[in-house]
């Protein structure tokens, strides 16, 4: 197995950190931000639901599912870019 230099590690980690921070910002908005204003959002409707209720019952959940799939994909690309992805097994 070829050695991974400290520079490569540092760059890989910097990019990983950036991705993680972006993920956590989106997470924060849909975990807390949106629900803090639920009462206000309820004055709008979305497919029949009051919007604030909808976000708590379904909207945020959909965002979380998509967010994790996207995160897994993006992190996979970062790993490959720096040659630190796992060798395909079996």
């Amino acid at each position: 197995m070829s050695e991974i230099t400290p520079e490569v590690r540092a760059k890989h980690w910097a990019k990983t950190k950036r991705l993680t921070i972006i993920t956590l910002i989106i997470w924060f908005i849909f975990s807390f931000g949106v629900h803090w204003f639920a009462d206000f959002l309820n004055s709008f409707t979305f497919i029949g639901f009051p919007l604030g209720f909808y976000m708590a019952a379904q909207g945020s959940l959909v965002v979380f599912v998509v967010l994790i799939f996207w995160l897994a994909r993006s992190q996979g690309k970062i790993d490959e870019e720096f040659g630190v992805a796992e060798d395909e097994m079996k």
């Binding site: 956590l24 975990s31 708590a56 019952a57 979380f64 995160l71």
Partner: peptide, 24 residues
């Protein structure tokens, strides 16, 4: 009602933390 949906949001949003900070 709406107040209880905090469980629904919490028990799904937690997985974002699992995926980004812990599991891998």
């Amino acid at each position: 009602g709406h107040g209880y949906l905090a469980f629904v949001v919490g028990w799904t949003g937690g997985y974002v933390l699992v995926a980004s900070l812990m599991a891998p």
